[in-house]
Design a binder for these strands. Structure first.
Lengths: 187, 187, 187, 187
DNA sequence: CATGAATGAGACTTCATTCAT
DNA sequence: TATGAATGAAGTCTCATTCAT
C-alpha cells in the first residue's frame, strides 16, 4: 500500500526531472511526450499513468519550482524577517544556480505559454509578499522613490538572471557582488 | 517592373506585420500558417509565394527588428558617436515602445527557439559593437569595474524591458528616469 | 469561387455516404477515421478539411437523414394534410428502404450514443408534430384510447422497422400490408 | 473447495452486475475495464482473474440474460405448455422490467456488436422454439396469415420494449394491456 | 487471491507544405 | 498572381491486456 505510493512518488519525480531538462533544453513545444518517456526509460503509456498530459506536467514543474523559491525567501513563518536586500539577492541566485534548468524553462516560456501565464497570476500574491518586504526595507532606508526603486531592483535581478541563464560563462557572481556593493553603499 | 517589385515588397511587409502580431500574441509554435494567411486576407498558397516557410518568416522578422535597433544605435556611419549612456538607454526604450510586438516576440522565444539562437550568434558582432562603445564610455568615466558595470547595465536594461513587455501599465518611463539619474549622478 | 464550393459540397456528400455505410456496417465506434478516408479514397488530413471530427460527421449524417424523413412526412407546408395512417405507414417504410444504411445506423446507436441522444431530444418537436397528427386522426376515428393507440402504433412500426433492418429477407411488405389491414378494418 | 468455488462465483456475479450496469449506461465501447474494476472495488489484475477479457464479460452477460428469458418462457421441460399469447406477453415484460439494464444493453448493441450478433445466431434455435409455439397457437386460432401475424406480434412486442427502454415514464403497462385486449378480442 | 505498474498498438487530430487549376 | 484542395508525418492520448511482486 504505502509501498506503491512511495514508488509512485519516486517515479513521478524522476519523470518530472527528465521533463524539466528536456523542456529547458529543447523547448517546451518541441519536446514530445515520446522524448520524455524515452529519456525516462519508461513506456509512453506509463507516463500517462503518472501525469494526465503535457500541460499538467508543466504545471507541476512550475509549482514545485516556485514553492522552492518561496520556501527559501519566506522562511520560518515570517517571524523575525531579517531578510534585507542582501539576503534576498544572494538567496535568489543561490536557488537559481541550484535549479538552473527550471529557471531557464521559466524565463524561456513565461511570455509565450498561456499555461504559465495563468499560473503566474495565480501565484501573484506570493511574489507580492516578497516585493512588499523589500519595499518596506527601502522605505526605511529613506530612499526618495521606494516604489520605483523596488521595481528597478527586481528588474535588475531579473535581467542578471536572464543573462546568466542565456550565456554560458556569465560572471554572475561578480555581477551580483557589484550589485550588492551599490546597495550597501546606499544604506 | 519596379512597380511590381514595390507592390510585392508591400505585400511582404503586410504579411510580416500580421505574422509578427500573431507570433507575439499567440506564441510562435501555436500560431499556424493558416492563421497568418487568414488574418492577412490572402490564401494559403499565396503566402508561400512570398515566404518559403514559417521559419523564414521568423528570420525576416528578426532581422528587420534587429536592423531597426542597430540603425538607431549606430547612426550615420559611426562617425561622431555622441552616444553616451543616456542616449543609449533612451533610444533603446523609444524603439521598444515603437515596436512592442517585435520585442515581446523576441524576449519570448530567444531562449526556446534554435532558429533565433542561431541568428543571435550571427548578429553577435553588431551587439558587441554597441556594448564596446558603452564600455569605453564607462572606462573613461573612471569606474572601477567597467566590464562588470557594462554587463550590469545591460542586464538592468534587459530586465526593465522584460518587465515592461510582461506587465501592462508598467511605469517604464519613471523607472528609466530613475536609472538615468543613477548614471548621471555617477559621472 | 462557386466552383470551389460546388466541389466542396460534392466531396462532403461523398465522404458522408462512405461514413454512413461504414458506421452502419462496422459500427460507429469500430469504424476508424482512417477507414473512412481510405474508403473515400482521400487522405486522412483532407477528411478533416471537410469535417472537424468523427462526432460532427455523425451529427451531419443524423440531421440529413432526419430531415429527409421530416420532409416526406410533413409535406407542402402542413396545409391539407391528407396524411391518414395508411399514408404515414407507407411513407415511413418507403424511406426506410430508400436509405437503409442510415436507419440501420440510427437504430443501432440511439441507445448507446450520447451524441445521438442529444440530437434526438433536440429534434423532439418535429417528431412530436407527426405523432400529434396521427393521434388526431385516431381521435376522429373514435377509438377508445387514442393516446395509447398512437403509442402502440408507433411502437409497432418501430418494431417492424427494427426487424426489417436486423434480418435479411424479412417480409416487410407483407407485414406492413397486414398492419394496414388492421387499421383499415377498424375505421 | 466448494466454499472457494461459491465465493468465486459470487465475485464473478458481482463483477458481472457492475459491468452490465456500466455497459447499459455508458455504452459498451465507452466503458473501460478500468471503470468496471473501480466500480467493483477490485483491482485491474483481479478482474482478469475472473474474466479473460472484455468480450468474454459481454458474452457471459448476454448468455445469462438470455437463459433467464428462456427459463421463464419455456418452463418445466416443455410439458403442458399452457403458454398462450397472453402468458407470453406478460412474461416478456415482467422479465424486461426485472432486468432493465440487461435489455437496454442488448437492444443497444445488437446491431453494432459482432460479438452479440454471433451469439444471437447461436441462440437462434431457442428463440425459434418460442416463436413456433406462438405460431401454433395462432394457427389454431384460425387467423388467415399465421406466419405474418406471428412476425407482426413479435415486432410489436419488440417495439414496445424498445420504447419502454428508451423513454422514462413510458406507460408500458397500459400499452401492454391494450395489446392484450386486441389479441383477446380476436380469439 | 490480490495489486497496480508497465506495455504498446492504435485511435484521433493538427499542420507545414505542395500542387493542380 | 492567386486559390484552396490535398498530403502525410508526427503529435497527443487511450486502453485492453500482461506481469512482477
Amino acid at each position: 500500500m504505502n509501498k506503491f505510493e512511495a514508488k509512485r512518488e519516486q517515479s513521478r519525480e524522476h519523470i518530472m526531472g527528465v521533463a524539466l531538462t528536456l523542456f529547458a533544453e529543447t523547448g517546451y513545444e518541441k519536446t514530445t511526450i515520446r522524448m520524455i518517456a524515452q529519456q525516462a526509460q519508461i513506456s509512453l503509456g506509463l507516463l500517462y499513468n503518472y501525469y494526465p498530459g503535457k500541460d499538467e506536467l508543466l504545471k507541476e514543474i512550475y509549482l514545485k519550482g516556485r514553492q522552492e523559491m518561496n520556501a527559501a525567501l519566506l522562511p520560518d513563518g515570517d517571524t523575525n524577517p531579517k531578510n534585507d536586500i542582501q539576503h534576498y539577492i544572494l538567496t535568489t541566485f543561490r536557488i537559481l544556480k541550484r535549479n538552473r534548468p527550471f529557471w531557464k524553462l521559466l524565463y524561456g516560456i513565461r511570455m509565450q505559454s498561456p499555461v504559465i501565464q495563468q499560473l503566474e497570476t495565480e501565484m501573484h500574491t506570493d511574489t507580492k509578499r516578497v516585493q512588499d518586504r523589500i519595499q518596506d526595507y527601502l522605505v526605511n532606508a529613506g530612499l526618495p522613490f521606494p516604489g520605483l526603486e523596488t521595481k528597478l531592483l527586481f528588474a535588475t535581478i531579473d535581467g542578471i538572471a536572464n543573462h546568466f541563464l542565456l550565456h554560458e560563462n556569465y560572471p554572475v557572481d561578480d555581477i551580483v557582488n557589484l550589485l550588492l556593493l551599490k546597495y550597501q553603499a546606499r544604506t
